[in-house]
Amino acid sequence: MRRWISSGLILFLSALVLVTTLPAPAAAQAKYPSRPIQLICPWAAGGGTDRIARMVAVLLEKELGQPVTVVNRTGGSGAVGHTAGATAAPDGYTITIVTVELAMMHWMGLTPLTYREFTPAVLLNIDPAGVQVAATSEWKTLKQLLDYVKANPGKPKASGTGKGGIWDLARAGMLKTAGIPIDAMPWVPSTGAATGLQELVAGGVQVVTASLVEGRPLIDAGKVRPLAHMADKRDPAFPDVPTLKEQGINWTMGAWRGIALPKGTPPEIVAVMEKALDKVVKSKEFVDFMNKGPFGILYKPAAEFGKFLAEQDETMGVLMKEAGLTR
């Protein structure tokens, strides 16, 4: 028996050694990139962020000549994936698709991670928030809605995501900029834009501040009426919906996504990645994909993306403090 065991062990170990040593990989560290690259996506496969990540991966693979695989590291409302991306080896072989939550989570005390742990590479997209009401409601314009809010504080309720989520902050920022107390239109949490829109149509809440893109099928169906768009310009898909700025409320807000590398990645590697991503973002395939998405394109190269991140972080911090969400 004992002999069997030891001979078995020896066989097993030698097989392992054989397997590990046989065809050794090309040893010399060639020019970057010389092996496959991981693109970490902090959100579940099949969602919006994941779809963009997979498209970027396909196109980046063409540019760099190395396989780019999307790895979904979900959990922790995005905290897990962002943390994994920031703490990966800074060798350019792990990149991350970062989302707006990066500028929000740390204010709520969910994670110590901030944008400073990343080297930004490119900003890809922004989906601006909107103001939507049920088609059966009395409000035909944003002004009518806001007048009602002022006259009946606390009565109309808004929804579209969890408390402290991006659309909640869009609501808070809009009210604050319009000079209305934030709690005059309280937030009803929901598990996402779809749930919020369903409540809107069923009469459970009166306003949804999710992006117009998310409400589009219901707008087409004549169930939902869009009142405003929280971007700099009108959305070509909704030419009749005015921006907040046009109505004298200087406020924009949206959910964005970009690509970043771990802090401390050597500049020459970052440069290669930036150049490749730059080409990807400007390619016809990518633009087509985003338009079909439908995702709003907002392209910013590394330096501008860095500035954008800092601004976003500050804006979010101020708003969240005001809304009593910081810890």
Binding site: W4, I5, S7, G8, L9, F12
Partner: peptide, 20 residues
């Protein structure tokens, strides 16, 4: 897998092959 099978009295050689 090997350790578990070995513990469950699978013959070591067989266990090693199956495991790998």
């Amino acid at each position: 897998i090997f350790t578990l099978m070995w513990r469950l009295q699978v013959r070591p050689v067989k266990a090693a092959v199956v495991a790998i």
